[in-house]
């Protein structure tokens, strides 16, 4: 495990180990590693994901995020997903979840 100033402990693939340790600085730092520049589009998604995590202690599914985009920004459903994958071109699990400080999702490892 890699530790940054003892503050954010991350797993071998760079995901945060304790989602509660996440803050906006962490997000910026992670985004930079992924080559992403965080603007309002990103923050809307990240805030939603953080809120969902606060409530449920699990990472939201992609469909929850797209629903948020539909409701908060008036996208249609297809557009919302397209928008999300434009912002995170390597995918939701690899990038969005990482930047939003979710533990590495394992639900899809196999099966």
């Amino acid at each position: 495990m890699i530790s940054d100033n003892m503050k954010y402990v991350r797993d071998a693939e760079g995901y945060i180990v304790q989602p509660a340790d996440w803050d906006e600085n962490f997000a910026r730092k992670l985004a930079a590693e992924e080559g992403l520049e965080l603007d309002d589009n990103y923050w809307s998604i990240l805030c939603f994901m953080r809120g969902y995590w606060q409530q449920n202690n699990v990472a939201p599914d992609v469909r929850h995020v797209t629903r948020h985009l539909v409701e908060a920004h008036g996208y249609d459903k297809k557009k919302a997903k397209q928008h999300l994958f434009e912002l995170f071109p390597y995918g939701y699990v690899k990038q969005a979840c990482k930047v939003a400080g979710m533990q590495r999702p394992r639900a899809w490892s196999t099966g």
């Binding site: 693939e13 390597y90 995918g91 196999t110």
Partner: peptide, 10 residues
Amino acid sequence: GGTISVMGYG
């Protein structure tokens, strides 16, 4: 497992 993908796909 882990997370690897190609550009544009999840």
